[in-house]
Amino acid sequence: MAGWEDVRELALGLPDTTETLSRGEMHWRVHHKAFVWERRLRRPDLEELHLDEQGGPVLAARVEDEAVKRALVVEDRSVFFTTRHFDGWPVVLVRLDRISRRRLSEVVAEAWLSRAPARLAREHLESFPD
């Protein structure tokens, strides 16, 4: 399964991505906009999820919209989830220790595309052979 080094490698492999530490959590940004970041579960999150403690690493990832977030959660509840904190926000939470590196690469790339300037995203997509 995936880990933080996988997230780092995948995120930094995308154009104009930077890595920052904010409030003790790692963030990967494109043009100063976070697209994936480390998300420790806070007390209200744990209570909502009926957990005593966070069981493993959690990645927050931007998605295109709420419909995409809901679809991911329905697709695989063992990997994708959300909390009330993110109601109304296009962000899905990912249990990093339960996602394959291949699926993680898709999540990171889609998150990047959702935050990258249109021209940069288009240039990046055009760089792939047909």
Rank of each mutant, 00 (worst) to 15 (best):
M1D: 04
A2Q: 14
A2N: 13
G3A: 13
G3L: 10
W4L: 15
W4E: 15
E5S: 12
V7Q: 13
V7W: 13
V7G: 14
V7R: 12
R8M: 11
E9Y: 04
L10G: 01
A11G: 07
A11K: 06
L12Q: 09
L12D: 07
G13H: 05
G13V: 02
G13L: 08
L14V: 06
D16Y: 11
D16C: 07
T17R: 10
T18A: 11
E19F: 09
T20V: 07
T20W: 02
L21Q: 12
S22A: 07
M26P: 10
H27M: 02
W28K: 02
R29V: 05
R29H: 01
V30G: 09
H31S: 13
H32P: 00
K33V: 01
K33L: 04
E38V: 02
R39L: 09
R40M: 08
L41Y: 08
R42M: 13
P44I: 12
P44N: 09
P44T: 11
P44E: 12
D45N: 12
E47N: 11
L49T: 12
H50R: 13
E53Y: 15
Q54P: 04
G56D: 09
P57D: 14
V58L: 06
V58W: 07
V58G: 06
V58Q: 05
L59H: 07
A60K: 10
A60H: 07
A61R: 08
D65G: 14
E66F: 10
E66W: 10
E66L: 15
A67K: 15
K69W: 05
R70G: 06
R70Y: 05
V73H: 11
V74F: 13
D76K: 14
D76L: 07
D76V: 09
D76N: 15
R77G: 15
R77T: 08
S78E: 13
V79Y: 11
F80V: 04
F80I: 01
F80C: 05
F80M: 03
F80N: 02
F81W: 03
T82Y: 08
T82S: 14
T83P: 09
T83R: 08
T83Y: 08
R84H: 09
G88T: 05
V94E: 10
V94P: 13
R95P: 05
L96I: 02
D97P: 06
I99Y: 01
R101G: 09
R102A: 11
R102I: 03
R102L: 06
R103L: 01
R103W: 08
L104C: 09
S105V: 07
A109M: 02
E110M: 03
W112H: 10
S114F: 06
S114M: 06
A116C: 05
P117W: 05
P117G: 11
P117T: 05
A118M: 00
E123L: 12
E123Q: 11
H124W: 15
E126F: 03
E126H: 02
S127Y: 00
F128Q: 00
P129H: 04
D130I: 00
D130Q: 00
